[in-house]
């Protein structure tokens, strides 16, 4: 029974109450966020929920709630925030960013949370896949002979991809090591 309870700890389902104890919270997390580019205005949030009401993803998936993510981050529920699938589900439409009365710049805040998550080794597989493509082709898509033939048909100039340059920048950034080391 005790073991079971131990396993349940940290697990959350929407619509269920869960007691969060102090030892699960990191009071320093909010300061970590305001230091991250995009997170500067984070502490201004007064939990009005305009962001959630404006969100087109929330309109489809009721479990997605940006106000709740911000609340969890504010109280220091670091692990739940960084592990959450939800921080990756922002469609970056900037509706909340535009409407927020406190200018929290939520879309940028979501980028900050994602960047922090990556530093701790949590990265959504689809986002990692995009980075792999960038390394390989210098772009998200590969341009082969076929595409260039199609471009010719439309009277368009050929395209040569230059992945070496992107590789050089990525190497300098060491982002590669972060991702490869933790996944």
């Amino acid at each position: 029974m005790g073991e079971e309870r131990e396993q349940e700890k940290g697990k959350k389902k929407s619509g269920e109450f869960q007691v969060i104890t102090e030892d699960q919270l990191d009071p320093q997390f909010k300061y970590e966020i305001i230091k991250e580019p995009g997170g500067e205005n984070f502490l201004r949030c007064m939990q009005c929920g305009t962001c959630t009401a404006s969100c087109p993803v929330k309109a489809i998936d009721p479990d997605y709630n940006c106000r709740r993510i911000i609340r969890m981050a504010l109280i220091g529920d670091k692990e739940s925030v960084l592990k959450s699938k939800f921080i990756w589900m922002c469609s970056t439409c900037y509706s909340c960013y535009e409407r927020c009365p406190q200018d929290v710049k939520i879309t940028e805040l979501m980028f900050a949370l994602k960047n922090i998550a990556v530093k701790y080794g949590y990265i959504h597989p689809s986002i990692k896949a995009q980075l792999d493509l960038l390394e390989k082709f210098g772009a998200l898509l590969e341009i082969s002979e076929f595409e260039n033939r199609m471009r010719e048909k439309y009277g368009l100039p050929k395209i040569n991809q230059s992945p070496e340059k992107v590789k050089k920048v990525l190497e300098k950034e060491k982002i590669k090591d972060v991702i490869e080391g933790d996944s």
């Binding site: 994602k114 990556v118 992107v166 991702i179």
Partner: peptide, 13 residues
């Protein structure tokens, strides 16, 4: 090269 948008979720710089 790529505009950079796909790298935004991973690393700001």
């Amino acid at each position: 090269v790529c505009c950079g948008y796909p790298a935004a979720p991973q690393d700001h710089s």
